[in-house]
């Protein structure tokens, strides 16, 4: 088991390092403060969305509405949070609470999360179109400043990724409540028998997902400076792929926050790498999929060996 746990984080790190080395070889200009920031700054919102998805996967569910949810947050951030900060913040808070309520609902009524979140994706998408029927809006100035900050030596994108990974690692792996939450994914019944209220735990996990989804949407607007009702639709699948690529599993509460962040970086880098390779766009999606399958196959081989040993 120790070997397996170790492999779980080694593989994402190795895949990122290999890809990074290949990218630097193809495009030496990327090997600079400026270059690293350009390569990775759009990975920051994806990393946050991946963490959000991880919170739900941690309790054995899956969230198919994350992309539209992040889009909705982006629309609110670029309109209400900019024009009337208090109202905007209240709306974002309400969104987080509704996510928590959704978790409670899914648990109490024993509904399949995949169906509920698929349904909610249309609600979020509709609300986003309602708030911002045509693309526009403006990023709050403080948010833009935050996302374009230039810390000494290490670019913002890298600093942000490290902070996200560290905070969520403390929250999910180190803290007591994080352990219990992972326990819900591992064996919900024994957690319940130990006296924990499952409804509240599920609501907490979904609430955390909502929180990180909101952060993802805000970070995205800080980068793009304005929003679009369809801005983050790809995040649903990217976030799921990121969690799995980072060593997480769909069931059993086996997740790795650090891995998830690295997974998100790897996915972003893979797209840039393929574009530097001048691969025809018709092949790019396929190639991205091939990279994903390659990493997962490697993981399977490693984990089999790990469990044998």
């Amino acid at each position: 088991m120790t070997a397996l746990a170790r492999y779980r984080i080694i593989l994402p790190v190795v895949s990122l390092a290999v890809l990074l080395a290949a990218t630097f070889y193809m495009q030496p200009r990327a090997m600079s403060y400026f270059g690293l920031n350009l390569l990775f700054n759009l990975a920051v919102p994806i990393a946050l969305a991946t963490i959000a998805q991880m919170m739900v996967i941690m309790v054995n569910d899956i969230d198919l509405s994350l992309g539209t949810f992040v889009s909705l947050v982006a629309c609110i951030t670029a309109t209400f949070l900019h024009d009337t900060p208090l109202l905007g913040a209240a709306m974002l808070l309400a969104l987080i609470l509704s996510y928590a309520a959704l978790g409670a609902l899914i648990h109490t009524l024993e509904l399949p999360a995949i169906v509920v979140t698929l349904g909610m994706s249309f609600v979020w998408g509709g609300l986003a179109l309602f708030i911002l029927p045509s693309p526009g809006g403006t990023s709050p100035v403080w948010l833009r400043t935050l996302m374009t900050v230039k810390p000494p030596f290490v670019p913002m994108a890298v600093v942000a990724s490290v902070i996200i990974a560290a905070v969520t690692h403390l929250l999910v792996i180190r803290s007591g409540i994080g352990t219990v939450l992972r326990g819900v994914g591992g064996n919900a019944r024994s957690v319940a028998r130990a006296g924990w209220p499952l409804v509240r735990l599920k609501a907490l996990a979904y609430g955390l997902c909502g929180l990180f989804g909101v952060l993802a949407g805000m970070a995205l607007v800080g980068l793009t400076t304005s929003a679009d009702a369809n801005i983050a639709l790809r995040y649903t699948l990217l976030s799921i792929a990121g969690v799995i690529l980072g060593g997480g599993e769909f069931i059993g509460g086996k997740v790795s926050p650090t891995g998830a962040v690295i997974g998100a970086l790897t996915l972003t880098l893979a797209a840039s790498f393929l574009s530097f390779m001048r691969l025809s766009p018709d092949w790019q999606i396929g190639a991205q999929g091939a990279i994903l399958i390659l990493v997962l196959t490697a993981r399977l081989i490693f984990s089999r060996k790990g469990s044998v040993a």
Partner: peptide, 20 residues
């Protein structure tokens, strides 16, 4: 051409072009 018709993909593509 971006592999998917999405603003986030194209933003990344533009950033790559700056790098290139």
């Amino acid at each position: 051409t971006t592999s998917e018709n999405q603003a986030t993909e194209q933003a990344a593509q533009i950033q790559n072009m700056i790098l290139q």
